[in-house]
Write a protein that binds this DNA or RNA. Structure first.
Lengths: 158, 158
DNA sequence: TATTGTTATACTCTATAACTATA
DNA sequence: TATAGTTATAGAGTATAACAATA
């Protein structure tokens, strides 16, 4: 829907607000919604969804991260994490090993298949992201992400 | 979690990426999640949630907008819209009136209570938004919203 | 007592398919 | 035939409460 002249450079965006911008909540919801559906479609060939890929990243990131810690990082409850890891285990992406130091905890380790999926997913995630942001300049893309990152860090501190 | 020096001005954000930024999907999900929970808490005294407020805005925005049209604008299915309008009607926020020109359609009109709620909600939404973005300068806040808006418009065009 | 993982359960938001009444 | 609203239903994602094992 539109033969309207596209905004040429995103750097000019904030200079004049000809039409009032939608509210932040609307923008965040729609952006997240659209991005997730694209990411899901792009990751589908790997047999995983965006959440599973995010979990793979976390479990690979720092060894010895417990389920609960990864859950917190992903912003989901630890009870939700259980089913997620269950499914990843069923798919042969990870293994659960009781922590020798604290046997209440699980070490969730990536299998070779998990590591391969993580690597392939990284490429797909990068492509999805740059495709999604392709109307923005490289600088504006970085600005957008940096701004969101700063806001989140501030929010986390309460 | 942090006694680290906070980034002073958000305008400096993109200049140097000392630590690699999280991926876009993560940033969008967390930002949306955090914002919605704040908005929900702030709107709770009015007896409505973020979705209902967004719907109020749409129904007030342009008179004669059908349920299906508003649903599309909100990014939800028209079947989902039914229950949403049901609840808003139960709360006395809106009325359904058959369209005289096309009786398949409903005119969803705001009641006096709906208009009052809309007005109060607007104040709350503005406060929530500026509070959420308070670590960003006014300019960077506008930049963030403008960037998201441009991306969404591009995505909508497919 | 507190914490990790777990289970059972339920709630919210969402969509698909099929119906109805109009057009 | 096609569309707007509706209903019934199911799925995904989520959380709360309670339990076992461990600390």
């Amino acid at each position: 829907m539109s033969s309207e002249p596209r905004v040429g450079s995103a750097s000019e965006l904030p200079l004049r607000d000809q039409a009032p911008l939608p509210r932040l909540g609307y923008l965040l919801k729609q952006a997240h919604l659209r991005f997730v559906e694209r990411a899901a479609a792009a990751l589908a060939p790997l047999g995983i969804g965006p959440r599973e890929w995010a979990a793979l990243v976390c479990f690979d990131d720092e060894h010895g991260l417990s389920q609960a810690q990864v859950a917190q990082r992903l912003g989901i409850d630890r009870t939700t994490m259980v089913a997620l890891v269950d499914e990843m285990q069923t798919k042969g992406l990870v293994t659960r090993q009781p922590d020798s130091a604290d046997r209440r905890k699980n070490h969730v380790k990536l299998t070779p298949h998990g590591r391969q999926t993580l690597k392939r997913g990284a490429t797909i995630a990068d492509e999805t992201e740059s495709d999604f942001l392709n109307v923005l300049s490289q600088e504006d893309s970085e600005r957008l992400k940096a701004a969101l990152n700063v806001v989140l860090q501030a929010v986390d501190e309460d």
